[in-house]
Each structure stands twice: as C-alpha cells, then as structure tokens.
Design a protein around this nucleic acid. Structure first.
Lengths: 197, 197, 197, 197
DNA sequence: GATGAATGAGATTTCATTCAT
DNA sequence: GATGAATGAAATCTCATTCAT
C-alpha cells in the first residue's frame, strides 16, 4: 500500500475516533508511519484529506445503495431496503459514518466544498427515497399523497436512526426493524385513508 | 446583567455560530465585554461554560415540553405535541439547538460529563414519548405493539428533522406537519392491523 | 523596560543585521528574553513589529530633520543641511536605516500598509527638499528652473549615498561633503546660466 | 530552449516579482515546466540560480554600457551617456534591475559570493564614471577637482534614480533628464569656479 | 539527464490557562 | 471580584534538498 493510502486509512480511523479538529496532522503522520511533511506532499492541507475520504466514501455508499435497490420488486420494498441498507452499511463502515456525522455540524457556509459534497450526497439519497415512493405509488404498494415531504420525513428518520447508532444509545437492529414496520403502517394503502390528513 | 450572564450569552451565540473548538475564550471575553481572565474566575475552564449552557438549556426545554404535554387530551395528541413543540422550540432557540447538535459528535467517551448531561436529556425526552404512547394505547388513540422501540423511532425522526432544520435543507414547518401525518397513519388504530408486522 | 520595548529593541537589531525574512520570531523572543508567545500578545503578527519600528523611526527622523532645517538661514543652507543631516542620522541610527533600506524592495503592492508608511515618509522628505529649493529661489541663494524635478534629483542623490553608506563601499563623510559641493555648483546662481539647459 | 535556460528565465521573472526568499524552488520548477528535482541537477542549490542570473546580467550591462561609451566624443558626453544608458537599460531589463535592487540588502557579509559579484559590478561602473570624468578634465568638457569623490556622487545619483524608477514613484525619464542637467551645471567649467569649493 | 516522492527542520501563529496585582 | 500580561505547548504548513529510479 502506498503512503497516500496509508495516510487516508489512518486519517479515517483517527477522525472517526476523535473528530477532525481534535486529530492533529502530526498524529496522522505518525500513525501512518510517514514523515509529517509527507501529508502535505499528497494533500493540499488537512482539509484535503477529509475531502478525499468524503468523496470516496460517498461514492461507495451510493453505488452500493443503488445496486441493492435494483434488486427490489416494488416501491415499498425499496423503502424497506433503503432503511435496512443504511443500518447494514453503518455497521460495516462505522468509521466512515462517524466521520460524516461528526463533520456535518462544522459545515457552516454554503461555499464550503465539503458541505457541498455532503449536501449532494444527501440530496441523492433523498432522490432515491422519492423514486421508491413514486414507484410504490405506481405499483400500488404505497399510498402517499405528498411524495416530496414524505421523502424528507423518511430521510430524517434514517438520519436519526444512524445518529442513535453512533451514540450507541439504542439496539439499532431492532430500532431499524421497528422503523420499517412504522413506515409500512404509514405507507401501506388499505383501511386507512392516507389522503385524509 | 452580571458578568457571568454576559459570558454565557456571548458563548451561546458564538458556540452556535462557529462551534466549540472554533471559538476562543478570548473571543468570548471580548464579545461579552469582560477581561479574558474573568472567564476563569467564573468558570473552571472553557468546558465549564458549555456545561452550564447545556444544563440550563436542557432544563428549559424539558420544563416547557412537559407543560405543553400537560395540556393534551390523549396519547396521539401528545405525540403530535412533542413533534410540533420541537419544531417551535428549534425555531425560537436556534442557537441552543445548534450547540446541542454541534456538540453531540464530539462526545466520545461515556465518562464525559457533558455526554451524560445530553444522554440524560435525550432519555427524558424518549420517556415522555413513551409515556404518550402508553397513554394513547390506554385511551385508544394509538395502536402500537412495541412501545419501547416505537418511542425510539419517533425520537429518531424528531432528531432527524431537527438536523434538517439546522442544515436549512428543507421547509421544516411543512416537514414537521408531514411527519405528524406520517405518525398518525402509522399509529392510529383502524382498518390497518398494526400487530401484523 | 517593559517586555514590549525589549521586543522592539531586539527586533530592530536583528532585522538590521539579518533582514526581516531571515529573522525568525523565535529568535527575536529569545533575544528579548521573553516567551515566544509574548510576541503575539503585543503584536498582531510578525509584520506588526516592523510596522511599529517603521512608524516610530519615521517620526523621529522627520522631527529631527525639521528641527535642523528651522535653524538654517537660506534655501541653499537648507539643502546642505538636509544632505548632511541624512549622513549624521544614518551614522547614529544605522540599524533603523538598514531596516528601511532592506525593507524597501519587499514592498510590492501599493496596498501594503508598510509601503504606505515608507512612501509617505519619502514624500515628506521630498517636500522639505522642495521647500528649501523654493526658499532658495526666493532669497537668491539658489537658481533652479525646475524645482519639482530637481527635488527628485537631490532625493535620489541622498538615497544613493545612504545606500553606499550601508554597503560600506565608500568613505561617506567625504562623499557627503562632495555631494554638497556638487549641489552647490549645480544650484548656485552665477556665471553659469542654469536656465540654459 | 533547454531546461536550464527555462529555469533561469522563470527564476528571473519570479525573483523580480516576489523576491528571492519569497519564491520557492517548486514554484520556479512549475513555472519553467520542469520537474522539481531538475533544478538541483542543473544548479547546486537555490542560491546557485541567482548567482548565474547575476553573473550573466552584469556581463550584459557592462558590455552594453562600454559599447555606448565608446561612441561618445568627450568626457561630459560620457557622463550623460552613462546616466541615460542606465535609464534605458532599467526600462528594458526591469526584471534584472529589480532583482539587483531586491538582493542588495540581503547581502550582509563580505564573504558572500553574490555580494562580491555585485560589488565588482558596482566598482566597474564607478571606474567608467571616473574614466569619463578624467577624459572630460583632459578634453576640457568637465571641470572637476575631486574626481574620485565626484564619481561616487554620480554613482549614488544613478543608484537613487534607479530606485525611484523601481518604486515607480517619479516620472523617471524626466528625472533622468533633469539629473543630466544637474550634472552639467555642476561639472561644466565656466563662470563658476569649481575649484572654489 | 531528469524525475518526483519523500523528508525533517523550522516557521508563524493560536490559545487555554495562570497569577500577581 | 476582576484584570490582563505572560506563558508554553501544540498546531498547521512550507520548503530546500536528497535520492532511488
């Protein structure tokens, strides 16, 4: 593995453990087994490191999520799959997720290139949720009047669960299953008239 | 207003705007119009300032939320009230909320006194959600099999909405209303058999 | 002597000896016998130190020059006094002069606050030369057709002599006396018609 | 153009623009379109680059100046030609001149090989001035008692004008013409007795 | 001849905290 | 109670130079 990869790996672990601001570049270099200056040969600055991590992680997340979605049979299954995928991915890539969640609050101004990266990722996830809702509305597996807002609601729910996951303050597999059941009840057409509200 | 209050006020604004690590004690002192050293007369250290902010803010949030809940007529109304209260409170106390959200990810180890404060606050909110679910189950306004998990789901949803709010990436009043509708559909007994899942 | 004065003194000596870029802040602090951080308590940054040195030195130079000029009897004596004053001042404040001369070339863009300081100082000296030329033209001690340009010529001459002085590449007291004689010949009215050119 | 020439060209431009210390070797390499390491193949170190620039520039300056001087008819014309040559050369080789002027102050100790280069150049120019003065004294175009000191005075004047030129703080063509007139008045024999002083 | 990855020494600056007054 | 000068540890980043290829 090249030095650049070693740096990315170490940085990922340390940012996840201690946060971005709390991790020094000297620490990353030492952990990666390279000279301090080497960091700044491969990356413009400290932020450049996290930028690369974000960019790579976002790509993997989206690619995997899409491949999972492609295997679903109808809209409701899609929604289920998205929620469950997030749970699984969070467990398998806990460090990446932790960095994402840690970094969100530091992203103040909209010009921030990292904020743009994360915003774009979020928007793509919301779009996939929306597409599943639309598919479900078409194939009859989902009854939903306000697709736009409902997509936001589901995304909020997923985000909140992920947060609980990171805080280790709940049995998240169970939480995820209950969230799916919750959505099913809210979205399944049937005795309940979802237009009513 | 005494010097201590001035410090708390300035710190609240600055922490909300720029984050904890990014705000220097000198900056707080200048903004508050006191000498730098005065901060350390009133607070043990920088962390002591945010501790006091958290502690006060949590008290206000909970007291207000409880007083709102006391005025509801049944369990389902309670759930609605909690979600809506969070929206209103977030709007009115945006700085406090922003500090909470900003600080969460920095709280790593469980021994952390600020993490304990926030955990306790979260737990109390979840308890209030649970109590409303139980009330609703008793008064017939809610059909819910797994109260414990459902409370976590709703809390996750609220947390996610608050996050969207802070990121200013959604029309949150509309999002809140749709979330309430979503919960209503998921929780209202009726044609839909909520035991089924 | 307070710490701030000690810093200024050390910085003056070191900047004169080695130049601005070549002197590190750590070096200044050590020489002044203060902690490294103390520099940045008293000055915004490294440039702030040289700014203060410039500002103080320029004031002293101008004040002294003006007081010398006030004691002259006519315009030609004024020109002589200016050239001689510069020689004496350079000898007595060799460090200040060295810093000035060293710093000039680093001052690129006009927005530079230090460049503005130095430009203003230079302009004031040129104005004093011009005033002496005008006085001399009025009192008959000087014959000069183009006062504006001649003032620039004399200032260039003074600047060049100061430079030679710093480079220690000439016997400058003798050079100064010859420069005065040179100017006398060029400016004294008489058999030579200075309009001619 | 070979790589070495490209490096020299880029370095000349950058040193003139930003100064020696402020220009990094990496910057020069990039500007020249060669690899960073290539610099150190062609030059011993960073200083070696400026040494070559100085050496070449000094040669050109002197050769041209001498060729101009050869075409003058008497001593006074020689002095005029030197002053005017400097103005023209400065305008045409502004970068070279800027590097010279920028570098002078950094040359502290006499052992410095670059200082020796510049000192030698300066001495040769002064010698040429002196020779013109002597020629003029012989051919009757100049009246000058102290040739040695006067040569220094004229060199100082030229240096000062060049500095004004670089600082862009005067209309230097006009300044140059006035300086020539100034020298004419000071040096031309006539009604004025130059022995007198 | 030429490259560019890697280095390590050092530079400037920030900042929470202390303490004498 | 309050101050603010002073500190020193640590952080980010720069950069001339080396060297294996």
């Amino acid at each position: 593995m090249g030095r650049k990869q070693a740096i990315i790996q170490s940085a990922t672990r340390l940012f996840a453990q201690k946060g971005f601001a709390e991790t020094s570049t000297a620490e990353i270099a030492e952990d990666a087994g390279v000279a301090h200056g080497t960091l700044f040969y491969h990356f413009k600055n400290k932020r450049g490191i996290i930028h690369e991590i974000f960019s790579m992680a976002g790509d993997v997340y989206l690619r995997n999520l899409k491949s999972v979605l492609a295997r679903q049979n109808n809209g409701m299954e899609g929604i289920e799959a998205i929620i469950r995928f997030n749970e699984n991915y969070s467990r398998d890539h806990i460090q990446q997720i932790r960095i994402f969640q840690r970094f969100f609050p530091d992203l103040g101004n909209d010009a921030d290139p990292e904020k743009m990266l994360l915003d774009s990722l979020k928007q793509q996830v919301i779009d996939l949720i929306r597409k599943s809702l639309e598919t479900g509305a078409a194939d009859g597996s989902i009854a939903c009047a306000k697709i736009h807002e409902t997509a936001d609601v589901i995304h909020s729910l997923i985000f909140g669960i992920t947060h609980m996951n990171l805080m280790e303050s709940a049995d998240t597999p169970a939480l995820t299953e209950e969230a799916i059941a919750f959505c099913r009840r809210a979205l399944t057409p049937g005795g309940q008239d979802c237009q009513r509200v």
